[in-house]
Each structure stands twice: as C-alpha cells, then as structure tokens.
C-alpha cells in the first residue's frame, strides 16, 4: 500500500478528532494526498500554491490563533527552501506547527537532485525544540500524527513517498520513540539501529544475517529528535557493538547523533548512510542498491563489519 493511500485517511480521521487541525498545501496536494481531507473539511483546508516560505509563515499565524496547522510539501522544499521561515517564524516561538515532509531521501520517486533531500535531518534536527518523526509503517504513521496533533511545539514528519507497509514487527499498539523489534530469541551480538522509513530493508537484512548465524538486536528509531538515548544505549551495552542505518547523509543526521552518544561509552560503532555525493536520478530500489542500503547490501556490509571487528 502506498503511503498516500495510508496518509489521506489517517489525516482525515485526525481532522475529525480535532477541529483545530488545518491542512496547508504548497502546491503539491495531489502528491501529498491531502484531497480526502480537503473534501471532508473544506473550511479547514488552504492551498497557497507553489510558495513554501509563505506557507510556513501562514501556518505560524494560524498557530498563534490557537489552530493546529499541518503544512505539506516535499522534504527538500520545506527543510531547505523554507528553512529560515521554519527557524524564525515557527521555532523561535515554539509554535505547534507540523511540517509534513514527503519524498524523503532515496524514497523520492526518481526526480533527481532537484528533489533529493538526503540532508534534511541535518537542517531540521539542529533546530532547538523541534520534534522529528520518521515513521516506517502505518502504525508508526498513525502514532506520529496523533503525537503531532497533541504537541505543544513544532514537529517535522519525514515521510517516504511510496510503499509504506501496514506494519513491521510485533506490535499494533501505539509506538514509542524507539522500540526493540524481536526477530530471534538467541543472544544478540550486535545492535542494528534502523532509522525511520528504511526499517523494512533492515528487517530483511537482519533475516539474511540470521540465516548466516549472526544474531542482531534490531532497534527502530521512530522519533529522531529528541532521541530516546536510554533504549539505544541499553541495547548497545547488551551487545557491545552498534550499527546505525539511515536514509540520510552521514553529517548531521540521526546516525551522527547516535555516534556521539555511543562514543561516550567506548562502544564499537559504524553508520551505513547515504554517500557524500550528488546522486543521479533513479527509483527508490535502484538508489538503495546504488547507496548500499538495500537489504542485500546492508546484510553484506554488516557481515563484513562484524568480521573486521572480531579480528
């Protein structure tokens, strides 16, 4: 099921639960799948056209009137083009504006460098008081929307464009910021942290490792900021080794935050991230393979890492 098919009904349901929700589009409503909300609540829907900076400022004004605006665009246009507007018009005041950032990183949909945001977390996580979610499945997404609705401050929702599964892992209950996903009962020898939407690739990679006799402990990060440091550290201490995997460049992402965290503990750490490179256009599967972040590549790289660490 595509994230669009999931997102529209969940957003509409959210609007039904809270009359303060206002959906703001910046000319990408058809991609962001806000049409169902617009049809259900036309008085609480505004499309401001292709003008992201104005959309963010407009949302700032709405929030000051006690409303709960959800601003929609692609992650590159929000995090980069409207960065200063987010910083000054939203973050300084700590307003409850939710930025719904679609098409993150390799999950863009073959639009190429102009649309590719592999650096948005670096821009957004650096903002004081910003809460950052990256859901991996429909249960995560529903949890995230509710948390954003109830939040007193700004939120950034990093969404993939296509192919979000209904559920990954063991729980249909509301998700925590970080959860340990049980894939095997044997004692793990490495903590594998999947950040956000790349979880399904990492789950498959972990199953490949299990077939090779390597038992990982899989940890998923739904909320990249603030990071649930305790859960991640507890797992890393159990296994003594930790690898973070992220659809983002190495600089300034969530994996970089985890690196700083585990450095204090003297634990073995590595990150599998997007390369420091301008990537060519391609669909998500092709780009994941190109970046070594498809399931097979992840499994090979993890196996290799563990071999080098055991020497």
């Amino acid at each position: 099921m595509s994230v669009g098919e999931l997102y529209g009904p969940l957003l509409t349901a959210l609007g039904g639960r809270d009359e303060r929700i206002v959906v703001v589009d910046a000319g990408l409503g058809s991609s962001m799948q806000t049409g169902q909300f617009r049809a259900a609540y036309p008085q609480r829907y505004v499309n401001l056209g292709i003008a992201e900076a104005n959309a963010v400022g407009f949302a700032s004004g709405l929030a000051r009137r006690g409303l709960r605006p959800f601003v929609h665009s692609f992650s590159n246009f929000l995090a980069r083009r409207a960065h200063d507007q987010i910083a000054i018009s939203v973050v300084v005041a700590g307003l409850p504006v939710t930025l719904v950032a679609g098409s993150c990183g390799v999950f863009d949909g073959r639009n190429g460098p102009s649309h590719f945001a592999g650096d948005d977390l670096a821009a957004i996580c650096a903002m004081p008081g910003m809460t950052v979610f990256e859901p991996a499945d429909a249960v995560d997404l529903e949890t995230t929307l509710e948390r954003a609705r109830a939040s007193a401050g700004p939120n950034y929702l990093r969404l993939r464009r296509h192919g979000m599964p209904q559920t990954i892992g063991d729980s249909l209950q509301a998700r925590e910021a970080v959860r340990v996903i049980h894939i095997n009962s044997a004692p793990p020898i490495v903590t594998v942290v999947a950040i956000g939407a790349i979880l399904d690739e990492v789950v498959t990679a972990c199953r490949i490792l299990l077939d090779e006799g390597i038992v990982p402990e899989l940890v998923h990060v739904l909320r990249a900021k603030p990071l649930d440091e305790a859960t991640i550290l507890a797992s890393a201490r159990r296994t003594g080794r930790i690898v973070a995997i992220e659809n983002h460049v190495a600089h300034g992402g969530c994996a970089a935050g985890i690196a700083a965290l585990v450095a204090r503990e003297g634990l073995r750490f590595a990150a599998l991230t997007l390369p420091d490179d301008i990537l060519p256009a391609g669909d998500a599967r092709w780009l994941l393979a190109r970046c070594g972040l498809d399931a097979t590549s992840i499994a090979v790289r993890l196996s290799s890492l563990l071999s080098s660490w055991s020497h």
Binding site: V22, Q43, G57, D84, Q85, I88
Partner: peptide, 17 residues
C-alpha cells in the same frame, strides 16, 4: 520578508475562529 505571511495566518485564522 517573513512578517506578512504571519499576518496572513493571523488574519485568516481569526476568521476561521
């Protein structure tokens, strides 16, 4: 450059309320 957009939201939001 940011204040007028905020003003739009304040004006529109007031009417929504």
């Amino acid at each position: 450059g940011q204040g007028l957009s905020i003003g739009l939201g304040l004006a529109f939001g007031s009417r929504m309320c």
